[in-house]
Design a protein around this nucleic acid. Structure first.
Lengths: 358, 358
DNA sequence: TTGTAGGCGTTATCAA
DNA sequence: TTGATAACGCCTACAA
């Protein structure tokens, strides 16, 4: 990736200055402080620049000198392309960029998949700050990011007591959903959840695995469900909980199949995300089961396609999470106290949860 | 955005070297060429780094020295947040990031709205190359980008004979669609299109404005429609063409209302994008018109929601456009000849185009 | 295996 | 209004 059709290859601020017989300061000022210069001289500089194919101060040199990159980094800890497939991630990015636009700063998407141990992409990212979106507690990219001497904000997870956080009350929100199912009369349910750790694992998870999940959001959602169902006297350790590493509709469908194999008598399938829930509905329909007459289904997130499809779920303000994260980053903390922005969630009744079949 | 909770603020490669009583080279090697170092010494370096809070070589200084940023820039010439609202842009980004992931390089989203004349965000972006996505021919951001001495690829528009391009045959593709409508019997149609220039304008456009459009894609699509309809003996200058600056479903709806006011007798509304077409369908339904029984509607792009809704349209491989753009950028041209990657389009019959009402 | 030294291209400070 | 000088923090021949 070098050169291009022989255009402006070598001119620098210094070479321009020499050509014009002025100092480098003058050329620099022509670009950065037009008012510190006679218009005539400035024009001479600009003309010469055009003639020599000088496109202005080199961004890297400038960044080194000013200690500013003019960009913030987004750490996803997932294939970058995932961000454009997952509706919640897309909405989060929309919120983030809303603020970036306003502040006129760039957003650098930093590559780094869960399996990759190489954190060079993080340690060598030229940014003025980082936002980490929903990473595992033990992710090396996260560690690398926290090591960098720039402000940092975490969205969703993990909650660390040295870093600003934007999130929601996952545990409380899903507990409410559980309460709703309990009130409808459900006592025999199945749960499908997103990945609990960074290594691929698919299948049923026991209590220890639930408690040890390094994705705090999932851990909290499972804990919230447990809160809700145990309050109604349902033994949590008898509820099948099936994990999926991939967060796709297909994964939700196959997880549902697995839940039904584990307990064919469930009257409700609770998913910890809308995407998985959509898969559950799909699998149930494939089996000629009606939703919610035969089996109820609930999700989490409130993504548009799910809400449009009538899913019973909990909506969280994802775009707003992005905005708040950017705002925290752009207005760094004054005190030593890390800041917490907890956003409200809303129960979405939908039409996929009803009384259990009798 | 300075500092954070007093963590590692000052350590540099040089200070680390002094602390350890070794040369800067040694410390540098510890990070960049571990094999050029005795494991013991390397460990000493890393330990000292951890102790002093040194997070590794400064990215900006490294970039300056190596002349590599480890990122490519994406120029949208639109609010950044737009990229996460427009389905086609999202798909393009997915394609782009698919390749970025593989190459382990970052993607820098560069702010710059159509109205903004300040191109600092472009001239000071620390990137190894640029992809410009569908910009106006006269956009100053584009000019600034082309001035930078790094490789560049343009997607969709404008077609410049000095720059690599990825695109489709807009004119031919939509001509086919026009032919389809002609065959069905449509002779009286209305057209709604996206913005033709960088300044806000909404309303009917005349022939001169069509020909002068600085967004080549729109110009070509209108030309393709003209080709198709004139071939059937329809006088193009009698066809109402309504422009909308905003690319939203609402804009499509209001443009449709305007078309219908201009010619209440149209039997088909042709939109130059699916998003606008969706708005057309919406507006027609609001008016209790059946689609396609009363009025036919066609789109362009083949975005998922539109295809799912049964829209008659032309599908283009948007994700693939992103991949190809990234590939061109990552494998720079060997010759002086600019490269052209023209991707195939597919006619999607859908169910929103039928014979005209009699 | 380790050290020396020059320079990447710019901006900040201070003086003229 | 303009110029001289000193960093910014690092990489990399080259030498030892």
């Amino acid at each position: 990736m070098e050169g291009r059709f022989g255009r402006g290859h070598g001119a620098t601020l210094a070479s321009l200055a020499k050509e014009l017989g002025v100092s480098r300061t003058t050329v620099s000022n022509a670009y950065n402080r037009p008012d510190q210069l006679s218009p005539a001289l400035r024009q001479r500089v600009m003309d010469a620049a055009a003639r020599l194919g000088y496109a202005g101060p080199d961004p890297m040199a400038r960044s080194l000198r000013t200690r500013k990159a003019g960009a913030v980094g987004l750490l996803l800890t997932e294939q970058l392309s995932y961000a454009f497939r997952d509706p919640a991630a897309i909405a989060f990015l929309e919120g983030l960029t809303l603020e970036c636009d306003q502040a006129r700063i760039g957003l650098l998407l930093i590559p780094g998949s869960p399996g990759v141990e190489d954190v060079m992409s993080v340690s060598s990212a030229a940014v003025d700050g980082f936002v980490a979106y929903s990473t595992a507690e033990d992710d090396p990219h996260l560690t690398a990011m926290l090591g960098r001497p720039v402000p940092t904000v975490i969205c969703d997870q993990p909650a660390l007591d040295t870093v600003d956080l934007v999130g929601i009350d996952d545990r409380g929100a899903i507990r409410e959903l559980a309460g709703h199912l309990v009130e409808l009369g459900h006592r025999r349910i199945g749960v499908i959840c997103m990945r609990l750790g960074r290594t691929r694992r698919d299948g049923p998870v026991d209590l220890a695995q639930q408690a040890g999940a390094l994705y705090h959001v999932q851990r909290n959602r499972l804990a919230g469900l447990r809160d809700g169902f145990e309050a109604a006297g349902v033994a949590w350790d008898r509820i099948p909980v099936v994990e999926r590493f991939d967060h796709t509709v297909e994964a939700g469908a196959s997880a549902t199949a697995e839940v039904l194999a584990l307990d064919p008598g469930v009257t409700a399938v609770v998913a910890t995300s809308d995407v998985l829930a959509l898969g559950a509905v799909q699998e149930l329909h494939r089996r000629r089961q009606r939703v919610p007459e035969d089996v109820s289904v609930t999700g989490f997130d409130g993504v548009k396609t799910a809400v449009d499809a009538g899913l019973t779920t909990v909506a969280q303000p994802v775009v707003e999470k992005g905005r708040q994260a950017a705002k925290l980053l752009l207005n760094p903390a004054q005190h030593e106290q890390p800041r917490r922005v907890m956003l409200p969630t809303t129960f979405v009744p939908g039409s996929t949860a009803g009384p259990p079949r009798v």
